[in-house]
């Protein structure tokens, strides 16, 4: 019973924060709303006894991504104190239609899928030892290949970002003066 109570409490919190993210007329406020959403989701993982996942959610999403986003927002001077205008009617209508379509797709696929109890349900959180072995073992049951592919993808993204940033700096020598 309390499990359900906490589930709905956190779900309500996450939904309201998500609503705040999209409706806030200011980028910084949206970012703070996103922080609340991510905290709520970390709490949800904790409720499901996925401690490692929850910790990683906090470290990566809150400590990394939200901080970076907030930093980027603060660096773009025009955005910081600006309040966005309401978009025109036709755009609101289109956005509403698109959201409705996406929601019905999600709801349809979720309702049509038959959820069953997992075959090997574990109520205890995996230790980092098990997770590390599984991530790096090349044998069956290991995820070495996906892990390496993702690492490669991330490195490509990093190099790409650096290249884009460098090209910019080379073109305009007096760039700092303009910004």
């Amino acid at each position: 019973m309390p499990f359900k109570f906490f589930f709905y409490l956190i779900a309500l919190f996450v939904l309201y924060s998500a609503y705040f993210v999209v409706t806030a007329r200011n980028l910084f406020r949206s970012a703070m709303g996103l922080l609340a959403v991510l905290i709520g989701i970390a709490g949800m993982y904790l409720l499901l006894n996925a401690q490692f996942l929850s910790a990683v959610q906090v470290v990566v999403y809150i400590g990394g991504i939200v901080v970076l986003m907030v930093f980027a927002i603060l660096l773009i001077a025009d955005v910081t104190q600006k309040v966005f205008e309401q978009s025109p009617r036709w755009r609101q209508g289109l956005i509403g239609a698109a959201s409705l379509l996406w929601f019905s797709l999600l709801a349809g696929s979720m309702l049509s899928y038959r959820f069953g109890a997992a075959a090997a349900a574990v109520d205890k959180s995996g230790s980092i030892r098990e997770i590390g072995r599984a991530l790096l073992s090349p044998a069956a049951g290991g995820y070495a290949l996906p892990f390496e592919v993702i690492s490669l993808l991330l490195i490509a993204a990093l190099v790409g970002a650096v290249t884009v940033a460098r090209a910019d700096a080379d073109n305009g020598e007096g760039k700092e003066g303009k910004a």
């Binding site: 922080l35 401690q51 910790a55 470290v59 809150i62 901080v67 603060l74």
Partner: peptide, 27 residues
Amino acid sequence: VNVGLLFILGVSSMGVLGILAAGWSSN
């Protein structure tokens, strides 16, 4: 929790968001 060290690193890194928010909202 069995990942206490990771958790404490993540949670305490959240404090910087409070500082950034304070700096921004003070105008």
